[in-house]
Write a protein that binds this DNA or RNA. Structure first.
Lengths: 233, 233
DNA sequence: TTCATTTTTTGACATAAGTCAATGCCGCCC
DNA sequence: GGGCGGCATTGACTTATGTCAAAAAATGAA
């Protein structure tokens, strides 16, 4: 498991921990491989541990009765997921499924709780992670209720351009259907809005690569969140 | 501060802690009084501590550029708020304002971090709380994106009837405008839906008191979340 | 390559919910 | 008691977005 030393020591959950703690964590961890579109856990399952993703993408999502899905998060390498029920003592509140071939490290509940009891600094890190997640949800709720789809899309694109540290061409990394679900809409609507925004000269779409042509316009759209505002341009 | 012993020991954040820990917390706490509609903190402020509400109601909300507000939570006595940035080390992600005359206990960041470092069990408790809150957000996001307003309203009413431990008449406790914001809609829409549901024989509205006439119908509505389904009744 | 499956796009249409504006209601303060 | 201001309701209208269906494009396997 030595090969994961760097990844673990850099994940937000365990960043800043001394080497001997990381070593302990490595002893606890179990490697798990998943195929594309494989279910990792379901809403309602008992949470007997959490995961840190190593490679590939994992989506966390909810399903409505009719089968429509709302993606809550998409996690890439280095990101922890499934940590909620470890502390709430309840079941997973959502489903997790791979988007691509995937490898994750699994940390059993008991071992982690033990470790935390002995090392309060780990607890502070975890408190920070959960707080950040809470903050993300806060933003997501705000977006879903305050902004219309074009606003959410613009906000997402700008976020990606910051994350990927690029000012021009960004990479969605996920399919447009999945992006639609993440934004709380459907592929048809997303498709229409993408072409409308392209027509407006805001972006240029080439498959999963999107060139941001008018960052200012996108920012205005992300802030006001009103489609009406881009009509006027 | 002795008079707050019971409140603190019963708040979800510190529930289950031994008495001597509660005592320590009481020493850290500072009393803060607020008038009606007074701002407690703003989005972007540094989080130098968190609060536990003692009396009155506090709303946590976001503002769009046009000034439209989305209420994220409403907290009553015994409920903690503002704890997110204490651990993430960042700023408050939303605003807090009182709805009524209000008193809260304030716990400074430094003291709390000290206490946690010395007593890991406190940290485990807090982790559980944040996890529960995350779980709630999960549900809220699901509701916003997967259900239409009548479904969200039905879910909210049923939740209240469980919280208030009543099967027939429940009390909203907040104005209908605020309820609208909490559900991610506007007063007009809420008003229309309330009278539609009353016409359907699902509920009976008398000001802020609402009588649940058809719990089964409400449950169906809350699950499917489709207005279409109550039209057919 | 070719074929089959999935993803994306486009069109016509339906509808939930927002906007604007007017009116009604109710408590509250002078 | 009377008027004032916030809250709630109602109506007419607009619009963003969902639904359904079909075509087009992209992807991947044989």
């Amino acid at each position: 498991m030595k090969k994961y030393f760097k990844l673990i020591s850099e994940t937000i959950l365990f960043s800043g921990l001394p080497d001997h703690h990381i070593e302990k964590l490595l002893k606890i961890a179990r490697e798990k491989d998943f195929n594309k579109n494989e279910l990792i856990f379901s809403e309602g399952d008992n949470g007997d541990g959490f995961y840190i993703n190593v490679e590939g993408l994992v989506k966390i999502f909810k399903l409505s009765l009719e089968g429509k899905e709302q993606i809550l998060h998409i996690f890439g390498p280095g990101e922890p997921y499934g940590e909620v029920p470890v502390f709430s003592g309840k079941t997973f509140p959502a489903n997790a499924e791979t988007i691509s071939k995937c490898r994750s490290l699994f940390f059993p509940r008991k071992s982690i709780v033990n470790l935390i009891t002995q090392n309060p600094s780990i607890a502070l890190n975890m408190l920070a992670v959960l707080s950040l997640r809470l903050r993300q949800f806060t933003v997501q709720v705000e977006n879903l209720s305050l902004k219309e789809v074009p606003g959410r899309l613009a906000a997402y694109l700008l976020m990606l351009s910051i994350e990927q540290d690029k000012i021009d061409t960004i990479n969605l990394n996920i399919s447009k259907s999945q992006l639609a679900s993440l934004l709380g809409t459907i592929p048809e609507t997303l498709s229409r809005i993408l072409s409308k925004m392209a027509g407006q000269g805001l972006i240029d779409v080439q498959g999963r690569k999107i060139k941001l042509l008018d960052t200012e316009g996108l920012e205005m759209l992300a802030q006001t969140g009103r489609i009406a505002d881009i009509e006027k341009l």
